[in-house]
């Protein structure tokens, strides 16, 4: 199957999981973002350009299922993640696993900061609430990515 068709087929599956299953794994007001996890793997494998395009379109679709007052929030955060994680495509054989891990978790934290900061705009939420939301989302995404990496390796093994 061509890479584009493969990505689209996998994305539809992930989108369905996000629509119907994410609520079951929610913690407080924050739910896991399977689309972000998929974006991490897809960008690392297919590079920056595909990462940006996938991040923007997947984020936009995600935004369309929610309130239109924040249309573009996911698209913005995920475009940036697609770009940053897409860098891994050419550097994985050069960087050590520790740096790759830091890079991925840093991108997840970056996504949480951008998205949650936009989401609390206009609310009378204290900095404590914003910080807790950011940490909760970043930790949740990191946990899923870590778990998935046992099933789908991002880095080629160094024999």
């Amino acid at each position: 199957m061509a890479p584009v068709l493969k990505i689209i087929a996998m994305f539809i599956g992930v989108m369905l999981a996000q629509l119907y299953l994410a609520q079951l794994l929610s913690l407080g007001a924050v739910r896991p973002d399977f689309i972000l996890v998929f974006l991490i793997f897809a960008s690392a494998r297919y590079g920056r350009i595909n990462g940006i395009l996938l991040g923007f379109s997947a984020g936009l679709l995600q935004d369309l299922t929610g309130s239109l007052s924040v249309l573009g929030a996911n698209a913005l955060a995920k475009s940036v993640v697609g770009y940053t994680v897409g860098t891994l495509n050419g550097t994985m054989t050069v960087w050590t696993p520790r740096i790759v891990n830091l890079y991925i978790y840093g991108s997840l934290l970056g996504h949480a900061i951008i998205y949650q900061t936009i989401m609390v705009q206009g609310l009378q939420a204290s900095p404590g609430i914003l910080t807790s939301h950011i940490l909760l989302e970043a930790l949740m995404s990191s946990a899923i990515v870590t778990g998935m990496r046992y099933l789908i390796p991002i880095m080629p093994s160094r024999a």
Binding site: R48, I52, L53, G55, V70, A75, L76, S79, Y83
Partner: peptide
């Protein structure tokens, strides 16, 4: 340039979302 374009379009959508 592509990521800047994506960020720009996203910001425009955020400002004219509804």
């Amino acid at each position: 340039l592509l990521v800047l374009l994506a960020v720009l379009v996203s910001l425009m959508l955020l400002l004219t979302g509804e």
